[in-house]
Design a protein around this nucleic acid. Structure first.
Length: 718
RNA sequence: GUCCGGUUAGCUCAGCUGGUAGAGCGCUACAUUGACAUUGUAGAGGUCACAGGUUCAAGUCCUGUACCGGACACCA
């Protein structure tokens, strides 16, 4: 009876080759317009929206990007199939400091330097560089299958984004949540900018700790090079060893460059347990010392310049790099008989620039600061009131911990690549004034002349307002429809940088947390669990994996075993397993189509086949749906894999072979069953493996499909 | 220093509200050209870090120990 088999689509005669189909399929989706929720068919009352973490437009996508695209695309495709009005709003990030650092490296290779360029010229060059990379980056998102609405694409330097950021800045001032002040900042001598506390990384180090005779006292320090200006000795008021010295006592002593006069300061900050219990202070180059000096109204003097060299106060050491000066100063003090001892076992954490790892030099500088405590409190209250939630409890604890101990935020950066700070600075008294309309001509305090603030905002200051900017706060229809968004999905490494700020700014401007739920993924590491880095040579480029195994296989490889909030390892062998899986699905389709061409839609299921539907197919779908709803995409993916391979292919299909060989009701029932299994499998797999499932869908006979595109078909309900 | 995790098969990791262990890859043997640039079947391999405790019963809850890791932090 199979003598005259009609040909099945020819494409199934050779193995599934992702490269042959992915581009066409993506084009088909794009052309349909269904990435845009306004075009989705049917009555979709419930909305589902995600604002994409905008990738940096300064290079190619890495494995971490591939992961977030996969997770979010799964959420989006699932919601779309569930009949929700689904929006995934894409973006591109100018990524201020990050991009400027990348560009500076490029300049360096060309033998140039930003310090010899006009700011405007530099800005224009980086803009060009960014625009080129942006196009490249957006194409990579498409290759990963991202079903986002390109018509709503936002760039972090779009005019409306900038005006919102400026507006928030002004609003913060009105609400007394902003101040400009000379305070200790984290200064990177290489990059010539201040950094926020989050951008400082501490390195554990063992350094010599020196004890010097300082008049009648012995003081300890790891940084002798800062000691030129030290003319105050601080000790705890209750330290009995020094009871004979009174606050304000002065005394003469021989110091690095000759005799000086020092003053005794009694302050609670002195720690009797530490060293000798006596310290000298350097208010300009230490935050702790700054606070002590402020309390007692002491003098401030800069010792180290902005490039890390000693100033004239160091006399014979002036102009020397601090590391070079250190040993020479110790030598000199030793020759004067003032070196008491050296502790070589001293361990401490040294603050370093997170980008170049150079030591941060605390400096006093006038910067704009945001008062964080009030903003943080609103966020904590919102969390207490369950106005939003974290998918994992651990993230919630980490979040609380940080917000509870938050410090003010320096938002000024001395770089050109960013959003300018709309303010005027007095050239006489350094007073800063917010000036949105560029109308302030003289200082409000002293009447002196003003200049435009040359600084730009910390990128995260604007990124923190991203959900507002992308949805068109305050009055666009999108804002009304999609804010607050459904989920914020991003890397756990930026929970403070980004997530916390979005929550605080969202609450500040709208009274609402910008998302209902926070899903944080971990880092993508190599197959041994090591961090990917260029120097280790273990970087896995997504594009390379896609080429070898296909995008669907990469997506599955990234999802299976990927528990929310934990790091995951990407092993090419694992991805290969899912390439085989795609091919399995391909061949299942071939078998089903090959054996059901004379299928009868009216056929009744045998009781045995009916049992398969209820006990296996619907049970599997119920479990998968449940896992999807609990954000356990890893378990859903694994269940799907085993369902399709071990149950559908190995059991149902194998056992169908003899049934299909003979005409009759058993055969007809089986044909119907196989088609049902196939359609349901394709649907449930679609969020995970969109390309191969849609490719197959396009080849299926019309009567098998409820919609022309699998992308908008209905999630199976049985 | 403070706060979080982790320790389960050779490797990488799952194991939800407690009932004597699972996946992928890898490995061994056999079979098969089949819908399948393969697949199928079978198999080896784990005192679930250690020590106590709760319980009829503990990778699964509690306490402690030892390692490993992460985040945060102003230490002279």
């Amino acid at each position: 009876m199979h003598d005259n088999k009609p040909a099945i689509p020819e494409v199934f005669l050779s193995p599934y080759n992702p490269g042959d189909h992915e581009k066409n399929i993506y084009a088909l989706w794009e052309k349909s317009g269904y990435f845009n929720p306004d075009n989705l068919p049917g009555d979709r009352a419930e909305t589902f929206s995600i604002v994409m973490p905008p990738p940096n437009a300064n290079g190619s996508l890495h494995a971490g990007h591939a992961l977030f695209v996969t997770v979010q695309d799964i959420m989006i495709r699932y919601a779309r199939m569930k009949g929700k009005k689904t929006l995934w709003l894409p973006g591109a990030d100018h990524a201020g400091f990050e991009t400027q650092v990348v560009y500076e490296k490029k300049l360096q290779k060309e033998g140039r330097s930003r310090f010899h360029m006009e700011p405007k010229e530099l800005y224009a060059e980086i803009m060009n560089f960014t625009q080129e990379n942006k196009t490249f980056m957006l194409n990579q998102l498409k290759e990963l299958g991202a079903s986002c609405d390109w018509s709503r694409l936002k760039f972090t330097l779009d005019d409306d984004v900038i005006s919102l950021v400026h507006d928030t800045f002004a609003q913060l001032e009105k609400d007394n949540l902003l101040y400009r002040g000379a305070r200790t900042v984290n200064w990177c001598p290489k990059h010539q900018t201040s950094l926020s506390n989050l951008e400082v990384k501490y390195q554990e180090r063992k350094d010599p700790f020196y004890y010097f005779q300082y008049g009648p006292f012995v003081i300890g320090t790891a940084r002798p090079e800062t000691k030129f200006g030290d003319k105050y000795v601080v000790m705890h008021p209750d330290d009995e060893r020094y009871a004979e010295y009174k606050h304000g006592d002065t005394f003469e002593l021989e110091w690095i460059n000759g005799p000086i006069t020092a003053t005794v300061i009694k302050d609670e900050a002195g720690n009797p347990e530490m060293g000798t219990g006596v310290m000298t202070i350097t208010p300009w180059h230490s935050d702790v010392d700054f606070e002590i000096a402020k309390r007692h109204n002491l003098d401030f003097e800069q010792i180290i310049d902005w490039t890390g060299k000693l100033l004239p106060v160091a006399e014979e050491f002036a102009g020397m790099n601090i590391t070079e000066a250190r040993s020479k100063i110790v030598e000199k003090l030793d020759s004067k008989g003032l070196l008491v001892k050296i502790d070589n076992e001293y361990e401490h954490a040294v603050p370093c620039c997170y980008k170049c790892e150079r030591e941060i030099e605390p400096q006093i500088k006038s910067q704009w600061f945001v008062k964080m405590k009030p903003l943080a409190d609103t966020a904590l209250t919102a969390l207490d009131n369950h106005e939003f939630s974290f998918v994992t409890e651990r993230d919630e604890r980490v979040f609380r911990h940080w917000l509870t101990n938050i410090e003010d935020w320096n938002i000024s950066r001395q770089i050109v690549w960013g959003i300018s700070i709309p303010a005027k600075i007095c050239t006489e008294c350094d007073h800063g004034m917010v000036d949105l309309d560029n109308t302030i001509a003289c200082c409000a305090i002293c009447g002196g002349g003003v200049i435009a603030d040359p600084d730009t905002f910390d990128t995260w200051f604007s990124s923190g307002q991203w959900p507002l900017a992308t949805t068109g706060y305050p009055d666009s229809p999108d804002f009304t429809t999609y804010y607050p968004t459904s989920v914020m999905e991003t890397g756990k490494d930026i929970i403070f940088f980004w997530v916390a700020r979005m929550i605080m700014f969202g609450l500040y401007r709208t009274g609402k947390v910008p998302f209902e739920k926070v899903y944080l993924h971990g880092m993508v590491r190599d197959k041994k669990g090591l961090k990917m880095s260029k120097s280790k040579g273990n970087v896995i480029a997504p594009s390379e994996i896609q080429e070898r195994f296909g995008t669907d296989a990469l997506r599955m490889g990234l999802m299976v075993n990927n528990v929310p909030g934990t790091d995951m390892n990407l092993d090419p062998d694992k991805v290969n397993a899912y390439k085989k899986f795609a091919n399995k699905l391909w061949n299942i389709t071939r078998f089903v189509l090959d054996n059901t061409d004379d299928y009868n839609a009216e056929a009744e299921f045998t009781s045995e086949d009916q049992k398969y539907i209820t006990e296996h197919l619907s049970a599997a779908i119920a479990e998968i749906t449940d896992n999807m709803d609990r954000d356990r995409y890893d378990l859903a993916a694994e269940r799907l894999y085993h369902f399709v391979w071990d149950h559908f292919a190995s059991t149902v299909l194998e056992e169908s072979k003899p049934l299909l060989a003979e005409a009759g009701s058993a055969r007809q029932s089986r044909q119907k069953l196989l088609r049902e299994y196939l359609v349901v499998s394709l649907k449930a797999l679609h969020p995970f493996m969109p390309f191969v499932t849609e490719t197959i869908w396009q080849e299926l006979p019309k009567e098998m499909k409820d919609t022309e595109l699998l992308m908008i078909s209905n999630w199976p309900e049985l």
